[in-house]
Amino acid sequence: MPSDKTTDGRVERSLAILEKAREDFHSALVATSEELRGLLDAGSGSAEARAERTAAELGAFAVGHIDVDRFSAFEETGEPVAVTVAPKLEAASRTLQSLLDRGDDLFLVRAEAGKDLREVVSAGLARAGRAFGAARTVELARSGRYDEAQHGEWLDRFPPSLWSGRERKLAPPIVVEIEGTDLLAGGLADFLDGAQKIVLVVRGPAPPAELSRLITPGLMVVQAEDPADLSVLAETEGPAVAALLPDGAARFVHLPEDDGGRGRLTVNHMPEDEPKRALGRVSVYQQAEGLRHLASLAAGWGLAAAPAAAPSGDGAAAPAASTAADTLAAWILRQADLPETG
């Protein structure tokens, strides 16, 4: 594999492909920030400011039909923000503004060589996730349920493990610039939920089929050389992970399951040479296993070899059960429909 130590504009092109997801998150950020500013201003703002806000809230249909100055006089301004709560709301507002000020940088993480990919991604998402933390802080503070000991860190970091299902649907996309020797895909599975999109822009030699380990029915997984091949990411509403690798790596696209319940895997390129040397923590054997895994999925071997012992029924696949007790436990877990945490 030829060495490639630069990203040659691939970062910018990856960000461009994630434009819609970025805009969705950015719009939510703007709306939350303005809502919070409105809350802080309510009651304390001038009559003109209140009328201006009322005019905006009433929209275009009201123009010419409603006297917004009069209307705003009847708007509920809410109880004045309590003195003890106001500083926390101001802090949340500053957090949201600081995220807005970062612009595209909010969605980009440049990992130093040798860093653990899982930790890098977690930190990047926890940083952008402060938007969710700020919104939650406001809700809790206003309803008197804020507890500094429990919620005090949320404006500094709000990791994906705390995100609700709805927040995961609005997950900030992230582009991670990383050394090929640090490409260990396994840890990324923790984040691939909701609408999370992760693009890895890889510098230098990398394991040839590392992302094949992440292929699961509902997940879009792409390995490519040309950023244009990532355009499929913009078409999925679900989670997706992609890596832009140097020339010579496997190139494939796994589309999430369709109505028939089957994902569609297309392998565009398989390296001809067997891996010959370890790359970072990935041994030659592990690299070869990645390639074999991809080949087997492409050939349909993986589907045919699915464990036959899995109990039937609705819900997500459970671990294969070896005893009657395990079978019962697995069934109960599927039926329990446990609420999401966080």
Binding site: A31, G38, A56, E57, G59, R142, G144
Partner: peptide
């Protein structure tokens, strides 16, 4: 094309403690 205004989304309901 309407120029969307975040203010259209309204405000959160007032959940401050009731006096």
């Amino acid at each position: 094309r309407p120029v969307l205004d975040p203010a259209w989304q309204g405000s959160l309901p007032d959940m401050s403690p009731v006096p």
